[in-house]
């Protein structure tokens, strides 16, 4: 479904991702893990079109997308939950969700999606008319995910959803992601510093170190590998 091939990208012509290749099949939940500054967010920003590759290609469902502007990539079916959530703080919860469905014109469909999100996240229904900035970190993360789902994506990119959340909340969000992946068949690519949690729920994973992929395999294989045990799990 997604194929990233020999991607090199960075900021102000200084590369921070070097020659990275990976791919995702339909229905998979894939994690890219690595420590702070490894380049995880940069990869997601390039897939969703906020950054343009220095070299390499990105293909989504058979189309090259690496030269498209971000707002067109959303229409093709990639939704990106950015790091730090970035809900529209001054707007109501409901308006945040409606903005998520910006690319959809069918009013009935938008209402159906809204109902679906309220069912998935009952908390958001309760806070429908509240300004998004007044919600807790966990609620904002739920909102950011729900907002992304409102665009009816085929592929969901989730950047560091655990950042700044209490462990209990992290588990909750992970559960939701697993549920939309398994029950609704949504393909998910998540990037995380929390290596253990991210690899546990993933079908497959990639280890990113200073802009290079150094290992890949199923979640279980990686968790049991010496590299992950030593470098990330402190064993």
């Amino acid at each position: 479904m997604l194929r990233v091939d020999r991607l090199t990208v960075g900021y102000d012509s200084v590369p921070v991702i070097f020659d990275v290749s990976f791919s995702i099949q339909e229905g998979e939940l894939v994690s890219i893990v690595g420590s702070n500054g490894a380049g995880k967010s940069t990869i997601l920003r390039t897939i969703s079109g906020l950054l343009k590759p220095f070299s390499g290609t990105i293909e989504f469902m058979g189309h090259r997308i690496d030269k498209l502007p971000a707002h067109q990539i959303v229409k093709l079916g990639i939704a990106h939950v950015p790091e730090g959530r970035h809900v529209l703080g001054k707007m109501s919860v409901k308006d945040n969700l409606l903005m998520g469905a910006y690319t959809i014109n069918d009013k009935i469909e938008i209402q159906r999606l809204l109902d679906e999100m309220y069912e998935l996240f009952p908390r958001l229904k309760e806070r429908e008319n509240q300004k998004a900035e007044t919600m807790s970190g966990g609620e904002q993360q739920m909102l950011a995910i729900a907002r992304a789902l409102m665009s009816k994506p085929k592929l969901l990119l989730v950047d560091e959803m655990s950042l700044g959340l209490m462990p209990l909340m992290v588990d909750k969000v992970l559960e939701v992601l697993k549920e939309v992946n398994k029950k609704k068949g949504l393909t998910i690519l998540m990037v995380e510093q929390k290596v253990q949690e991210a690899l546990e729920i993933a079908d497959r994973g990639y280890i990113l170190q200073t802009g290079k992929i150094v290992a890949h395999g199923t979640g279980r294989e990686l968790l049991e590998s010496d590299l992950v045990k030593k470098a990330y799990l402190g064993m």
Partner: peptide, 24 residues
Amino acid sequence: TKTGKAIQATAQGRDIAELMGVNT
């Protein structure tokens, strides 16, 4: 209006609005 809300969203962050499909 929908366009008005897109203006609000863009004011709060150009990248964020782009990620929702807004041609900023």
